[in-house]
Amino acid sequence: MSPFTTWDIVRNLLLATQWTVLLSLIAFAGGAVVALAALLARTSRNRWARRGTVFYIELFQGTPLLMQLFLFFFGLSLLGLNVPPWLAAAVALILWTGAFLAEIWRGCVEAIPRGQWEASASLAQSYFEQMRYVILPQALRIAVPPTVGFSVQVVKATALTSIIGFVELSKASTMITNATFQPFVVYGFAALIYFALCWPLSKSSQLLERKLNVAHRRH
């Protein structure tokens, strides 16, 4: 009935997967930068910087990502800016990722014993020197497994951008379904592709956790 072979379906889905991967990378890289800034503000000595960051984090963690996407997509165009779906998707995902990574990393920074802060302060190091030379190198070690684990959430979150019209794996699945009338096959393959992207990340997060924990215990 339909001129689409299974290979056609898979091939087109894989083409769209590029955009899922690209958007995930952009969201993750941008989110990491935002999170680092938020982390520094969140742990700084300036009370207003701390409060502002808490507000940002609560706002983005306390509302659905879909709403954030809609607000960026429809809201900014109301202000007279012409926002293409990819831009709204990227900005919303970067801010969303940033809010979560900032909290994850704050946990890692706070896991560093107080004495490390005190010792570096007694060496007359400034806040940024303390962070750069003493705290972050140690926090980084604890931060790797949960950060890799969160990247799975980022990949899955990109699926939502299909709703504002960004053509990635999920949107492509809907479009191919509309052409082939084979939702079972198409969404099944889409799920498998997402699984192939996410599962290695989940597994490596688990392995890293085990490995880094062992190293930690030996000290």
Binding site: V152, K156, A157, S173, P183
Partner: peptide, 11 residues
């Protein structure tokens, strides 16, 4: 845990 909710729902 390794696939998006949207895809599960559509499936």
């Amino acid at each position: 845990r390794n696939t998006p909710f949207l895809i599960q729902l559509f499936f």
